[in-house]
Every structure is written in C-alpha cells, then in structure tokens.
Simulated scan of single mutants.
Amino acid sequence: MADGIVKDDLLLDTDERKALRESVAKLVGSYGRSYFQDVTKRGARPDELWKDLGDAGYLGVHLPEEYGGGGGGLTDLSIVIEETSAAGCPLFMLVISPAIAGSLLTAHASEAQKQTWLAGVADGTKRIAFAITEPDAGTNTHNITTTAHADGPDAWRIRGQKYWTSGIDDADAVIVVARGAEPDARGRHPISMFLVPTDAEGLSFQPIDSALQIPENQFTTFFDDVRVTRDDLIGEEGAGLRQVFAGLNPERVTAAAQANGIARFALAKAARYATDRVVWSTPIGAHQGVSHPLAKCFVEVQLARLMTMHAAKLTDEGADPAATGSASTVAKYAAGEAAAAAVDQAIQTHGGNGLSNEYGLSDLWFAARMFRTAPVSREMVLNHVAQHNLGLPKSY
C-alpha cells in the first residue's frame, strides 16, 4: 500500500500467502499506476507486466501442476488479482483468462484441451476470452439466441452475436456459450460451451465505445456459421448451463478481489493526500469531515475482503455449490459497493486534484463503478439473496 500509511493487513493469511501478497505487490509496484495509465492512454497492452506475472507463476497459481500451474486454489489467484489492483494496475484479463477460462477448462475440458491450453494460460503465452452476454438476454442465460446448429454427427455451425466480450482482440481463443437448435421437453434449448480460435472463419468483432479506461477493449462479437467440432466442445453437450458456473463463481470472486484492490489503492492515495495536504496550518485529514468518510470506506472494504476470501475458501474446499454460489455473489456485491464508494470518496478528498489524471483516481471511477453492474448486477444479487437466503418468493 502506498508509502505504508494504510494498515489494511486485517486478513489472517498464512505465511506462504503473506509472502505471495508481498511478492506480487513488489513486482507490480515496480510498474505502478503511471505505467498502467500510459499503456491505456496509448491504446497499447501491458505485455511486459503480463509476461512478468506469467514468468513468476502468478497467472496460473491456481491451476493444476500437471498442466503447468502452481497447484494452489482460487484463494491464491484472488490474492494475486487483489494485489495487482492495489498496486494501481487492475488487469481485467486476469479475471477473464486465468479465472474464468482456466477454471472452466480445469473442471470440464477434455484431456487434449487441457494439454493444449492450460500451460499457456498459466505462463501467459495464451489468452482466452469468454463470450456469454447478449444484448437481449442479459443475466437470463436461458434466453440467449446464439445457436449451435448441427453440421453432421460431430460438428456444429455457430450463429449469433455476443456483447461486451472483453479482450477478444488480444485472445487466442474464446469460450462461447451457445444453445442447441432444438428445444428439450420443457421448451428450453440446452446450453453447450465451445472453445473457438479467434481466427476461425466467420468470427468477427467490432469495438464498443466504452467509458472504461483500461487496456482491455470491449467488443460485440459475431458468429457467422463458425464451424466447430466435438474436439472444440467443452465438457458435455447440453450441460453447459450447469458447467458454466465452474467459471462464473470464480469470476465473481476474482472480480470482487479486483474491486477490493482498486478500493485499497484509492484509500491509500486519499490517506496520503489527507495527511500531506495542509490548509490553514492543519492537515485536512485531521478534520472529521474528511477522516470519517474515509474510515467508513475502510471498514466496508475490509468486510468485503473478508467475504471475498471466505467465498474463495469455500470454493477451494469444494463446499456445497449453493453455499459457494451465494458467498461468491454476496462477495461481489459487497466489493462492488465498497469500491465505488472508496474511489468516489478518494476523489472527493483530493478536491479539484481528484479530477486530474496525474493523481491516478479519476480514470479509475468507471472501472470501480462497473462492479456494481458486472459480472452480475447488484439488483440480481439482491434477488438471489432474497430468494435463496431469506426464503422470500421469487420476484422475477
């Protein structure tokens, strides 16, 4: 944390995980916020940082050792992602390729797919995007229209489009969630997942003009008769809706970790500024009107961090899926709310300087705010909690 002014070591990490935090913070801190801002402003990619993270084993810290990973768990990856963000470099591709894709492939991919892809995901030489969101489906995955039409006994043609596909321009492949062409007995179209090379014929994408100031671009992705075979199918045909949560729960946990890191970065900047900034012979941080809002944000961030680590621990222990899903969802909600509040308050603490990119906060606002909407909206989290944790009637 910046200059060591903020004491946020309330988590009871093991010695090994404390060392992991410190080493990631040191590596990413050698790049720092200004590096991240410069890369983003130039429309470039943080390839040097990504390579260093891969070479150090941090991208695959949670993946099985037999496939080039570190043999750890989601807790370890969450630490990597949190510390990367706390150093001012919130790499969204960390959530997409190692967390979502890496976890999905570990849980459901064929042996050939694991051998082909996981080592590259672990060392950073291969990146995998994830395409599930559609303009007219949103959170309701049952309502997706991207369809895999049978093309012989062991092949399909994928037709449709996806929305907000992050980083596909920098990915070697994309995991596509598609429905079957024929409905089942309930009238629903079974969901499957396919691993599609991004240079596949018929696959194209166009950028979305996004307010997010991050290196990863956002795209609408089009599938125009993209041919895939059974070798590209992830897991079991028609079981994708159940299998996809092997990636969605880690996504929510690691997104929460990223939000927590952003919040920690913002609070550290604010605490330092409020300590150094003197008005009428008094540091502004001595005034409760400045200190109390920051203290409140600190409390909320610590609670979010605890819930995030709890959700990661449940995942690593193979706990009941319902409990793991609820914990992951609640962690994402808590972290999203805490991050948005922390960044906003940090900007306010800086006064006019908070709007200057020089201070590294104003361009974080939309990234922090995003976590109230994605990867699952705060309203859908509240729907889930009301129904599954409070036992209230389903509202949608």
Rank of each mutant, 00 (worst) to 15 (best):
F194P: 09
S281E: 14
V244W: 09
F219E: 00
I191N: 09
G318Q: 01
D316L: 06
T315W: 08
N217D: 00
D320S: 01
A256G: 11
D224T: 08
G318I: 05
P283H: 10
I234L: 04
R227I: 07
A239N: 09
Q243S: 10
R230Q: 09
L306I: 07
P293W: 11
L241T: 11
Y273C: 07
A246L: 08
K313S: 01
D320W: 00
I234G: 00
G235C: 00
E251P: 09
G261E: 03
E251A: 07
M309E: 02
Q218T: 01
E251R: 14
C297D: 14
L267H: 01
L267N: 02
T198K: 10
P183H: 15
A271I: 14
C297A: 11
R227D: 01
A239D: 06
G289P: 08
I191H: 13
L248E: 14
G240R: 02
F245I: 11
G318P: 00
N217W: 00
F223M: 10
R188S: 15
V290I: 15
P283G: 06
E216M: 07
D209M: 07
R252Y: 11
H189C: 12
C297G: 13
I234A: 03
R188Y: 15
G247M: 04
P197T: 08
A319M: 01
E300W: 15
G285C: 09
L314R: 04
L306F: 10
L241M: 14
V278T: 09
S281P: 06
G235T: 07
Q243C: 01
D225R: 12
G240M: 04
R188I: 10
F222N: 05
V253K: 09
N260F: 03
T198L: 01
G235E: 08
H310M: 04
R277H: 09
A266L: 13
M309K: 02
L212C: 03
A256V: 02
L203C: 06
V228Y: 07
D232W: 04
A257N: 01
A256Y: 05
V301H: 10
G318H: 00
Q258F: 04
N260T: 07
R305L: 00
L212R: 03
A256D: 08
A274S: 15
H310I: 01
A256S: 12
D232H: 05
S192E: 14
V301L: 14
T198Y: 08
A263K: 04
R264E: 02
T282A: 12
P197M: 11
A185L: 12
C297S: 14
G247A: 13
I208P: 01
A256L: 12
V226A: 04
G285A: 06
S204N: 07
Q302F: 07
L267P: 06
V290Y: 09
A255F: 09
E251F: 07
A200C: 04
P183G: 14
T254F: 13
G261C: 05
A239G: 04
Q206V: 08
Q243M: 10
I208V: 09
K313D: 06
G318M: 02
N260S: 10
V279N: 11
A185N: 13
G187N: 13
Q206D: 08
A211E: 00
K313I: 01
K269C: 08
A239K: 11
A312Q: 03
S210V: 02
D184W: 12
P250V: 13
G261D: 03
G318A: 02
L248C: 13
